[in-house]
Amino acid sequence: MKPFAYVRAGSVAEAARLLGKGSAALAGGTDLIGLMKGGLAAPARLVDLTGIDGLRGWTRERGAGLRIGALTPLVELEESEGLARHLPIVREALADAATLQLRVMGTLGGNLLQRNRCWYFRDQAVPCWLKGGTRCFAVDGENAHHAIVGTDGGCNRVSPSDLAPALIAHDARVSLASARAARTIPLAELFTDPALHRREEHTIRPGEIVTQVVIPDSALQRRGTYVKAMDRKAWSFALVSVAAAARVRDGKLRDTRIVLGGVAPVPWRVEAAEREVDGQPYSDAVAARAADVLLADAHPLKDNGYKIPLAKELVRRALARLAAA
């Protein structure tokens, strides 16, 4: 790691003021410290956010939705019985996320902002496109873990977060604050649309920090579930994950959301797929049609074609679980 200055911010305003050019915000550090050790980040100043009061924990107020502070450690989200009653998908999504140590250290905001795990990206010596190079080395390299859809001929990374698909399936919005302004956007828009060919994964701007995630009241009416396939039983990123949520009555799903992790550079949602499910009596055939629409544009690479049948089966399992509940 290159030398840097360290400062602990006492408030959002102070953090925003301290986050000048060349600075990076530090929360759990589980990704940032790794990027710095690997030579992929070299901030001159780290602004530690973990001492900021008011960005930790969650509240539920009718009319204001469910608000979760960005600095809430993942383990607190996982262990909270109250949160599990309002939004059980969070506990499901965290059950197989990383390890206890990383869930103790990691925060909600950090989980959403973690950078991708492509081994070409993570290798400092490889000048891949995302790091300013000329090409993707995964497209004709070792690509078993890479994207099958949504790459638009560009970066073949996959979105690694377990929480992002789960929260997007509940219409989450994310609040960001800088020294100048605060804004709240749909969580899906925190992730850079690969079609825009921007060499970044997130739309957060320099000097901004994530302050909270908000789930609207309407989305709390949905039941949600999260299923994840890994290449071993524990301590692994998703090969494919599926977050699904819907209002369920008489075996019919309405207001359905289906969001996939591990298949595209961003959490992958296709609204037309959800319309295949809405209002229909659930059947495996309905789930198969939804999955077909989700993956209609899939173009697998040499080693990752397995993700197509895997994703289809996980969509089926997730929707069947919702319908049966």
């Binding site: 602990r8 550090g29 589980t30 410290i33 140590q101 103790v104």
Partner: peptide, 11 residues
């Protein structure tokens, strides 16, 4: 429990 290798001592 935390990973001490990914934790800054100053923090």
């Amino acid at each position: 429990p935390v990973y001490a290798c990914m934790t800054l001592a100053v923090a």
